[in-house]
Design a protein around this nucleic acid. Structure first.
Length: 113
DNA sequence: TGATGCGGCCGTCATTCCTT
DNA sequence: AAGGAATGACGGCCGCATCA
């Protein structure tokens, strides 16, 4: 949703270049706390062990995705806040420019009279 | 005071995007 | 192409405000 908007405007770039900050994907190497690495697949044999491994993998995936979702929402909120700030700045600039234009018009009118 | 609507947060699933 | 991370979409839960 907000990604599409970014693609259109194309000027909300992060310090890193042409990529918006909220889209920068930095690979995380650290495993979340409490996560234990499984034995290598070659050491698993019985259906019981295979089922346990599948369950473990699923729980790990869910846990990682849970964290990712939290992080994603956080980034999205920051991005929206950033856009709102930008809107405020641009509105102020616009206001200033309108006033400046008005002043220049007044000056010009008085000169020609 | 219970019913209802609303907004925010969360977890999960499905899909997209990126890296290797 | 496979695998993992990021994100969109959806539904559930909770707290708060409003109303009858």
């Amino acid at each position: 949703m907000y990604k599409a908007t970014m693609a259109v405007t194309g000027d909300e770039t992060a310090a890193t270049g042409d990529m918006p900050a909220y889209q920068i994907r930095t690979p995380t190497t650290a495993l979340p706390q409490g996560v234990v690495m499984a034995a290598s697949p070659g050491t698993l044999h019985s259906p019981q062990q295979l089922a346990e491994e599948a369950t473990r993998k699923r729980e790990l995936r869910l846990m990682k995705n849970r964290e990712a979702a939290r992080e994603c929402r956080k980034k999205k909120k920051e991005y929206v806040k950033c856009l709102e700030n930008r809107v405020a700045v641009l509105e102020n600039q616009n206001k200033t420019l309108i006033e400046e234009l008005k002043a220049l018009k007044d000056l010009y009118c008085h000169k020609t009279e």
